[in-house]
Design a protein around this nucleic acid. Structure first.
Lengths: 147, 147
DNA sequence: ACGCAAATGTTATAACGTAACAAAGTCGCC
DNA sequence: GGCGACTTTGTTACGTTATAACATTTGCGT
């Protein structure tokens, strides 16, 4: 039951600043995510950047890893897919998504009550939290049956 | 951006009752999960039940799916792994896990503040939630550096 | 120019998950 | 008992997601 860990979510910057520090591959992947209308799998991203010169999965996964560290992209665990972060000042440590099962859209948001719950729980239970992920699964307004 | 969905989390029962309704394969998988000291991947489960007669991945995944529907097991998205639920009366619609990056342990718990946050948000945002998943990632008490 | 670190490129393979179909068990019902 | 419908199980083959390991190139300070 041993378990290593991955680099993730520790840089600080606001997004405007962070975007200017991207490498070529990071920028390619980030641009694709920004232009997408929903979460994209790593291989979908790969298809989209292939003509720009990225050819193999590790290149895409490495770019994604660094974008996540900077809070510029998030992985949606339930979908094995990735999105560009649209909130400014996001460091990636506390993300919440509402995921629609019908259209696949994923809406990211922040919430003070949730942050409070997390903070309280980690204090009361001596858990040294590095990051939290919350995924709400259901139907978005547009996808709900008429009335 | 269309997207289907999977069967999940809709039965009701308390666990004591539900356990008596398990089929042979479901019981085999559930017993393995109950005996494990942490989350298990589907192929680790397969190894553990092979001598009992289950031989292929679909058999394991099918049993897991039905256990999840009954709230007897949960998938931890971040780990691509599964655990037996130890709370009674769990229907699987709202799970919270604290996952240790060092030892791999996953502690499940429930929280009223979190439930309230979820309920409020779905009301305020007209989101028809089917289930919520929350995963806190960090170090459990036993794995934190001395002081 | 040299050396170091970061980033990139490439191959092969590991790990996770499912489609599709066949066979066997369960149960009600005439 | 025999029939039919449904559920569960069994099996093969494949699709999808992710990473290990190593070679090469790039950026940059001195």
């Amino acid at each position: 039951m041993e378990h290593p860990n991955k680099a993730e979510a520790h840089h600080t910057h606001d997004h405007a600043g962070a975007k200017n520090e991207l490498t070529r591959n990071e920028r390619l992947v980030h641009t694709v995510l920004e232009g997408a209308d929903g979460p994209l799998g790593a291989y979908a991203i790969l298809d989209a950047v292939r003509e720009a010169g990225m050819r193999s999965p590790p290149q895409v996964y490495r770019a994604l890893e660094r974008l996540q560290q900077r809070g510029l992209a998030h992985r949606i665990e339930r979908l094995n897919a990735f999105v560009a972060c649209r909130r400014d000042e996001c460091d990636g440590t506390a993300t919440i998504f509402a995921i629609c099962e019908n259209c696949g859209c994923a809406r990211e948001f922040a919430d003070g009550t949730f942050d409070g719950f997390v903070t309280d729980w980690m204090r009361d239970n001596s858990f040294a939290m590095r990051l939290s992920r919350c995924e709400l699964v259901g139907l978005c307004l547009a996808c709900q049956p008429p009335s």
